[in-house]
Write a protein that binds this DNA or RNA. Structure first.
Lengths: 347, 347
DNA sequence: AACATCGTGGGTAACGTTACCCACCTCACT
DNA sequence: AGTGAGGTGGGTAACGTTACCCACGATGTT
């Protein structure tokens, strides 16, 4: 019942009959330990089951811990990114720890502070909503990579998908199927910095631009809600209530498309018979057979892998110039989008 | 570009013209600091933006960090549990950090070790697959709560759902709808300890017991795969290939039901017209309109809240006797189950 | 024979915080 | 005036690890 005292480096040193310095060297594979010494120490380590304390290590140097801030747990797209990070970290000795920031500035600040307090060697911020200034502050304190948000910084690296182009792919796909009244559901944004940096804003821009490019500027129609299932639900209801109901809805994210499909079901409609629906992200949910959602794959796995790589590079050299990785999205047509028929068009 | 040196307690002490001890007292709201001193110190803290290092704190005492091991990120049921934990931890000063264990013993061991190395004040293990002995070892090292696994221990508390009863609810529901050929997809288990402790094993037991109670012992039919979407897919294909195809499938978890629905779609079948399908967990996915999966709600949110409460209690008093919290599941009938018709029965 | 050089091991002082103890001051009470 | 109690502040030694440096002996070089 009484907690067994931790085995420390001192115990190992005594047990092996060497100095703590020697044990430390062996642990770190540092120079200056003969093979015999290494063997002796390793035997003692195994025998006592010694594991170094990350806290004590962190006080002197590295903690071998990467902190990841993610805005929420329910959006499966983030799982793809995390898989990419985990995979890249395999065998590097780094452990990834995650904390959820719940998509608002106050908790996000709290969470990132918590990661810094716990002396992470580096942090990966996924789709952060914090102010630009705040991100810079974090990046000056600890090596930082920002994923899923554009914008160039002298302090942090970024990994993002080319959202502007991706949105264009969706519009082209739907226009190619004969649709003209193609509506969009966006995540509402007013902050000028975020209008330039956030993926949702770029997707909306890409939508507008592509609509114009296809000669459909008169049909530009946007419902402004949030990137959540509820946001999709609300947005769809707004769009369905309009006098000229759209024949296709481009939801800004797969999770939004879920809400749209939910709302369609409630209204007794279905995709693609009544309305075509497309999402964005390329989550496992979209690939799920009974749903089979047309979406844009932004290669979350690769985003995560790139983020981890950039972070390790920056931990190794904090002065190297920052990089901006932009990945190309691909359209994945599935069964929620279909050619415009007389029936759908006439509504 | 050069990393700004961290503000430490010494900087604050100097800036406020007091001792580090005084600053420490103020930080911890400890006894022995006059109001004037508190004010002076707080002013200095704000001015310098001081935040204590969790690593250094951990070396002496507590880190105010709770570690959570979860088996994977894609099963939305775990998100419910985590929400419950987060909510309970609100305002306690504890931060939750998560690490994913990927459902196998080796990585699970690695991850739990990593949490211990980082001197977590306590850990919550969600549906761990580790051996009983390993769990005991962890619990002797650090306050531990095990969620989603039965079995009594002298060292760790447990929170689980009454899986045996829950499985019975599903069988009763389906039998009530007239089904007799009710099949089950289980997560394969052979280890005798796990057969007693793991929810999947208890659900399978509950299924068998309820089938017998309803006089359906001749129709007991189990596909033994895993609790993943692929497992559900595989299990469903096995069941569909049998000479006497079942009219209802009870999938051991919602994620398994996803795989079942996927396989049905592939086979050109649908639920509930051709086959009724029920899951288990009560995830947000099951509630999703276009799916509308009949399931058993195991109140993940409450499980998480209970786990956090038990953990904080144990951190406060490591010698108190362990507790086993068992929550009652409830059936949530939705649209994937329906009364047996002549058409489905005759297949 | 004198002198570098190299390989190997250990001593010591941090890192930032807190637990524990002691010193001092003020006030009230004998 | 002397004593005790209570309130307030600080000094010091840990916690477990690593970076830096120094010492020693063996080997090779002039």
């Amino acid at each position: 019942m009484t907690a067994a005292r931790r085995v420390t480096i001192v115990d190992v040193a005594r047990h092996a009959g060497v100095s703590t310095t020697a044990v430390s060297k062996v642990m770190r594979n540092a120079y200056g330990a003969s093979p015999q010494m290494q063997e002796k120490v390793r035997a003692a380590i195994d025998e006592l089951g010694y594991r170094p304390s990350a806290a004590a290590r962190g006080l002197r140097g590295k903690t071998y811990t990467i902190g990841v801030m993610l805005p929420e747990l329910r959006n499966l797209f983030f799982a793809e990114i995390l898989d990419g990070v985990t995979e890249h970290l395999q065998g590097t000795g780094y452990q990834m720890l995650m904390a959820a920031g719940s998509n608002n500035r106050a908790t996000e600040e709290q969470v990132t502070d918590a990661l810094i307090d716990r002396s992470m060697d580096g942090v990966i911020l996924i789709a952060p909503v914090s102010s630009r200034r705040r991100l810079e502050t974090i990046a000056r304190t600890v090596p930082t990579v920002v994923v899923g948000r554009h914008g160039q910084s002298a302090h942090y690296d970024t990994v993002a998908d080319d959202d502007f182009t991706g949105a264009g792919l969706v519009v082209a796909h739907l226009a190619g199927l004969g649709h003209r009244r193609i509506a969009h559901i966006e995540h509402h944004e007013t902050d000028p910095v975020r209008l330039r940096e956030m993926p949702n804003a770029l997707r909306a821009d890409g939508y507008r631009h592509a609509m114009r490019a296809h000669g459909l500027e008169d049909h530009i129609d946007i419902a402004s809600t949030t990137y959540t299932q509820d946001g999709g639900h609300l947005g769809a209801r707004q769009l369905l209530a309009r006098p000229h109901r759209p024949t296709a809805i481009f939801a800004g994210a797969d999770i939004v498309a879920m809400g749209v499909l939910d709302a369609l079901t409630e209204a007794g409609l279905s995709a693609p018979a009544d309305i075509s629906v497309a999402g964005y992200d390329g989550t496992a949910f979209a690939a799920f057979g009974p749903i089979s959602l047309t979406t844009v794959d932004q290669a979350g796995h690769q985003m995560g892998g790139n983020a981890a790589r950039l972070l390790l590079d920056r931990i190794a050299d904090r002065t190297r110039p920052t990089a901006q990785v932009k990945l190309s999205p691909t359209l994945v047509p599935r069964r929620t989008t279909a050619a415009l028929t007389d029936r759908t068009a006439s509504r």
